[in-house]
Computed example of a mutant assay.
Amino acid sequence: MNATPSKAIPDRLAVVVTLAHVLEQLEASRTSVGADQYRSVVRRLADELASVPADSALRAVLDAHPAASQLYENLNYRHAGLCRSPLEHALGAELRAKEAIERARRR
C-alpha cells in the first residue's frame, strides 16, 4: 500500500491524504463498492484538491496515491492537459487520437 509519512504532511493536506487513501482502498477492493460511496469519496476529494495549492507537498501526496493523481489530472485537464502523466504516454495518446480523427475524416 502506498504510504506517505505523516510527519511530512502539512496539516492543510490531512483531509486530502485521508481521502486519497480511502480512494486507493476503494479502487483496490475485491468486494463490490457502492456507486454512491465511490462518488461521495471522489466528489469530496475533488473539492479538497480544488482548495489546496499545487505545491511540492501536494505533488508528493499525488505521487503516493495514483487514483488521486488521476483524479487531480482529470480535474485540471482543461488548464494543463495531462500534467501528471509521463510525457511519452501523453504524446502517444495525442498521436493515436490524431490518427483516429484522420481515419474518421477519410470515411
Rank of each mutant, 00 (worst) to 15 (best):
A93M: 11
Q25A: 07
S69A: 15
T4E: 05
V61D: 00
E73C: 07
N2R: 14
R39D: 08
A64H: 00
L71P: 03
A90D: 03
A100R: 14
S85N: 10
K98T: 10
L75C: 04
L58G: 03
V17M: 04
A8Y: 11
Q25T: 05
V17L: 05
V41G: 00
H79M: 14
R103D: 11
I9F: 02
P10H: 08
T31H: 06
E99P: 05
A97R: 14
V41L: 04
A68Y: 03
V17G: 02
A8M: 12
V52T: 06
E73L: 05
V52R: 01
H79D: 14
V16T: 01
H65W: 06
A93V: 08
V16S: 01
E94P: 03
R84V: 08
A80L: 13
L91E: 12
R84A: 05
C83K: 07
A60R: 06
K98S: 14
A64K: 04
A80R: 13
I101K: 10
Y38T: 03
V42M: 04
L23G: 01
E88A: 12
Y77M: 10
N74M: 12
A97Q: 10
D55T: 09
L26F: 07
L62K: 00
S6M: 14
E102Q: 15
V41F: 02
E88V: 07
A80K: 13
A20W: 03
N76E: 10
L87H: 15
R105W: 08
P10D: 09
V41N: 01
T4C: 01
A64P: 00
S69N: 13
L91H: 09
V22I: 15
A28Q: 10
Y72F: 14
L45E: 03
P66A: 14
L62F: 06
L58Q: 02
H89M: 11
R105H: 07
V41S: 02
E24H: 00
V17R: 00
D55C: 11
V33T: 07
E94Y: 12
P86H: 08
E48D: 11
S85E: 11
V33R: 02
Y38G: 01
T31A: 09
A64R: 04
T18D: 02
H79S: 14
Y38P: 00
A28T: 08
E88K: 12
I101M: 08
A90W: 05
L19P: 02
A14H: 12
L58Y: 03
